[in-house]
Structure formats: C-alpha cells, structure tokens
Amino acid sequence: MASLPKRIIKETERLVSDPVPGIKAVPHEDNLRYFDVLMEGPSSSPYESGVFKLELFLPEDYPMVAPKVRFLTKIYHPNIDRLGRICLDVLKSNWSPALQIRTILLSIQALLGAPNPDDPLANEVAEDWKKDESNAIETAREWTVRYADKK
C-alpha cells in the first residue's frame, strides 16, 4: 500500500490532539485509512442518551472523493437506512476537498439533531416521520435506548 498522504496524517494527529466535542475517531493500527468512530447523540434530540458507533474509511482518492461513512449502531432516522448508510449532501454531490474528517463527522452529528424526512434514505422511517412526527421521535428514542451505548 502506498504511503499515507501527509494530509491524512495531519488530520489524524489533530483528531487525537484536539478532538471534536462528543466525537471520537480512532484509526485502526493496521489500516490508518479506517477509523472507528464514537458519536454522542446531540442534546435535545431523541438520540441524546446514546453513543453511536460508526465506521469511516478514506478511499484511495481522498480528498478528491468524500470519506465513506456508515452507522454500525442501529438507528431510527429518516436519512439513515437499515444498513447504516447516510443520506447527506456533503458525503455525495456536495463533497469538497476543503472539507475534512472532523467537519464531516460534525455534519453527521448535526443531521441527528435535524432529521430531514423530505430527503429520505430510509423511506418507511421518513413516511412515519411525516405522518406522525411525535410518534417517530418516540421510536427514535426507544431505539437509542435499545441499541446505542449509554452516554
């Protein structure tokens, strides 16, 4: 494998020395492009009691292409599907090489606090969300208690 680009080394160092509040990202020792991520649910959201596991992978072309990020913890959210895939513009068409691992993780955390059922990935969840928001929020809270780690 080619040596790790300086940018990835710098980003990793800063993630460790100056972590994003509520987010922990640790690279695998045997693959420094693969990160285990722990993300606290944002306060005043149905996810606030939980800590969610994600995986983040930096493809060969990073930063010309976005990191690949996926929730490993089951989560009830209109923009996150059953496989943990995330519907977020900055991970797709709105990626820019000036964005970083930390800014992407912050965007994902912000998405937890601001679900967008009009641009869904998980269709059924989005339908529930639009039909009965308070019920959907209650389900999200239950799933958080059931599947996420406690804060």
Binding site: M1, S3, P5, K6, R7, E60, D61, Y62, M64
Partner: peptide, 11 residues
C-alpha cells in the same frame, strides 16, 4: 516533500 500524486498514491 513529494507531490500531490505521490502523496495520494495516484498517477
């Protein structure tokens, strides 16, 4: 330091 292509393993 190496160039962009080197650093990113492209080219």
């Amino acid at each position: 330091m190496s160039n962009y292509n080197d650093e990113h393993g492209i080219g």
